[in-house]
């Protein structure tokens, strides 16, 4: 077990957004967080790496309590890719180099440059390195954000709707890339995602959220017609095609 979330509670003004959320994930596991808009998914991600300070509960990474860690130590363990980010006038290399921030003391070292170089190569972004990020397409920009998160060399990677701006090809490419790197480097991934079929294709485990609480959590078996109806209030049929679950709204 690498990450343990224990009774996490968060309120925005008087409205409860997270209500005693608990779960845990193992090394290299990919977890999809599912639920309707406003169910608390994004808030959950932000509470895990202390972007938002939870009102109660703890997060443990490798047994260590995050509440007792400085933000910079958290950043060395957990990386985060936001749903939206400002596009400033910055080159791709600079943008990814920013991921080394938690490790930079006075200035970047050759090692930092090398790490960024390798990640860019891995994501085949090398030829883009001096392009400005405000000139990139949606898919390329998304990749840059993921590259930045990987430059943090995290143990856990949090992704908030990484595929929402992407076309089909890029959706699959980005998710496959994340999955491969998770298995290869033993990084655990928590991803908030709306497309249920993409989630089924990508994740090992699922967390269904409803009204600030966890409705159910577990493997593919928890994705049932009843669960989808309860969580999304939509009637679906689940078919097995080529041994893969496919969800069809009716």
């Amino acid at each position: 077990m690498i990450l343990k979330v224990d009774n996490l509670t968060f309120s925005y003004r008087s409205k409860k957004v997270l209500d005693k959320v608990s779960f845990s994930i193992d090394k290299g596991e990919c977890v999809a967080v599912l639920g309707v808009n406003g169910a608390g998914k994004s808030t959950l991600l932000k509470c895990i790496n202390k972007i938002l300070k939870p009102d109660g509960g703890c997060v443990f990474i490798e047994g260590k309590n995050l509440n007792k860690m400085l933000q910079i130590e958290v950043a060395r363990n957990i990386a985060y890719v936001p749903q939206r980010a400002n596009v400033s006038r910055m080159t791709v290399f600079d943008a990814v180099l920013l991921g080394r921030k938690p490790y930079i003391n006075l200035d970047v070292t050759d090692k930092d440059i090398e790490i960024v170089n390798d990640i860019l190569k891995h994501l085949s972004l090398e030829s883009y390195s001096l392009k400005y990020i405000d000139e990139l397409s949606g898919g390329e920009f998304q990749k840059v954000l993921i590259a930045r998160a990987l430059a943090q060399q995290p143990k856990v990677l949090l992704l908030d709707e990484p595929t929402s701006n992407l076309d089909l090809k890029n959706q699959i490419e980005v998710l496959d890339f994340i999955k491969n790197i998770a298995k290869e480097k033993g990084i655990s991934v928590i991803v908030v995602i709306h497309d249920l079929n993409l989630a089924l294709r990508f994740a090992d485990k699922f967390i269904l959220m409803k009204d600030s609480k966890i409705y159910s959590a577990g493997g593919e078996e928890i994705i049932t017609e009843k669960a989808i109806r309860d969580v999304y209030s939509v009637d679906v049929e689940i078919e097995n095609i080529r041994n893969k679950k496919i969800i069809i709204p009716i």
Binding site: L70, Q71, I72, R84, N86, S88, G99, K101
Partner: peptide, 23 residues
Amino acid sequence: YIHRWDYNALEASDDVAKSLGVE
């Protein structure tokens, strides 16, 4: 000047800066 990297992180967004360890 010491905090130049923190400011660069801020350019991305507050959330990103926090996730990169900036208070």
